[in-house]
Write a protein that binds this DNA or RNA. Sequence first.
DNA 1: ATACGTTCTCGAACGCGTTCGAGGTCAAGA
DNA 2: TCTTGACCTCGAACGCGTTCGAGAACGTAT
Lengths: 313, 313
Amino acid sequence: MANIRDVARISGYSVSTVSRVINQKNYVSEKTRAAIQKVVDDLDYVPNDVARDLSRGKTFNVGVVLPHSDHPYFTQLIHGITTAAFAAKYHVVLLSSRYDAELERDYLEGLRRKAYDALIFTSHGLPLTQLARYRKYGSIVVCEQPGASGIPAAYAHRRTTYREALAYLKAQGYHHIGLMLSRPIAVSATSQATADAYRAVFGSKPATKDCATDVITLADGQRAATDFIKRGLQFDAILANSDDIAIGVTRAYRQAGLPVPFLIGQEHQLSGEVAHLPTIDHYFKKVGENALQLAISGAATNIAIDATFIAKQ
Amino acid sequence: MANIRDVARISGYSVSTVSRVINQKNYVSEKTRAAIQKVVDDLDYVPNDVARDLSRGKTFNVGVVLPHSDHPYFTQLIHGITTAAFAAKYHVVLLSSRYDAELERDYLEGLRRKAYDALIFTSHGLPLTQLARYRKYGSIVVCEQPGASGIPAAYAHRRTTYREALAYLKAQGYHHIGLMLSRPIAVSATSQATADAYRAVFGSKPATKDCATDVITLADGQRAATDFIKRGLQFDAILANSDDIAIGVTRAYRQAGLPVPFLIGQEHQLSGEVAHLPTIDHYFKKVGENALQLAISGAATNIAIDATFIAKQ
DNA sequence: ATACGTTCTCGAACGCGTTCGAGGTCAAGA
DNA sequence: TCTTGACCTCGAACGCGTTCGAGAACGTAT
């Protein structure tokens, strides 16, 4: 396949002049431009993107680290990220992590290796301080409150909305509340926010036995609820970490022939809509768009938006 | 940042020897290896991926063209593709197309520009013959029956399963059937398959008025059903192109205060499970895995799997 | 002792586009 | 007329890792 030097040789102009023609830069006479363009067309020449990236020192790739590509939280986030990336002519590279520290580190190394210009962590296993070390190699964005790490972040405020949802439960007279969490409170800012809100509303930390962790899918929700039942826990209400998961909970209780506790879901999913569940919408598409903006602008700021508690739908 | 020549200079060895050390190749004495490794560690050197890609002439990128990143068909496909790509150490680059011919062509050009080693079209607007022209620049895979185009394909057999589903409707005594399609019959192999199955079962092509097109989301399903109602069409049953869409149809009829026709969904989605809808599972995760395998192997074959009609769930 | 096969290392070319400094031309302003 | 400032083009260096051909050193088989 032809390269820029072939075009130069055949057209009789220099490589640099050919370069300015294909990049439509100034200072090329119309005559020259036309002559070179003709050779470009004849040879069917197109510049090599990799060589370009190398010489420009930039790839326009944004790596998106996501633990589970089938989870709705990530699906919505990805949707926002790709939408914004497309508009900005950036490329989205999907990176599966399954919260594996080694993989995450490998992706961070990708920043050093110049494989990506920026990295968005939709969630992460490594501590933020470790992520922060790689900021000198490229822009890093997380999708949660970044605490003192200083890492730019795009996220939805969870605490207030969780408080609102839990206060709603309290107002309805529910006091024995079960919580479904995607990850243990110690390692996840989201779980932490849920626990904090619980304490703010009910005056004490949620009991460990009332919290199910590692609940990601509908099946997990069903399993976790079955476990609650087995352990003889009787909840008035359960705050599930997605609408789908709430559906899983419903099934478990139905299967056990027990009354279903009052349920609140999250993420405003179709399943919740169909079942008329109260839910919390974190607007993850918007969060994804914000994350990408931060990633490519390299701005060292945060963009937070408010989540909404939807009591009736 | 240090490059391989720095390592060579400082260690006193040649660039080629350093290269074999970092790539763990043969023919390096232990003493030399250790000396070079020390310099690599001291300088904190890592090879530049872009330079590597350029010199190897390979990027390990697979571009995945998808019209809608929020559609469940594509979500499932992407899930399969990323899973397989991860295992094979390939990178998945997401490419939004919205069926825009210009965009699709641009992505095909990406193959020439060496931006991707391979391209997977989860769906496409351009005719297959046009896609086929770019095969000389890299491997191309489509996720549908490739007809005479010769393009490698990974897909689920639809015709037989559609026939099965429609025969089921006929056996149940339903004769006036509405079809919801994502795209017009003329441009979509999927819609074509649906129409063919209809003809096989009912002996004639489906009437144009009985087919709604451009139905992608739940809201589209609702809109299309509302339109059916407005036009005074009375269906015994409707074959929807996803479970979510079937839910949209249900809503439209409920809202109009009319009895809901018998519904069959597709894709075995959660919404359909909750509503106990019959559905067709095309196993798109598996199809995605197959597509990626084809893309990176460069094999010029097809991998078809069978879809399943699930009458009761 | 000669020949051959390994092992080890090097230099240079290669993949390919971008960009900077330099040098030449030409017209307008002083 | 001289200066100044576009305008136009070129050559070479740069970004950086891979790989091929060649050559040196050493051991072993004949």
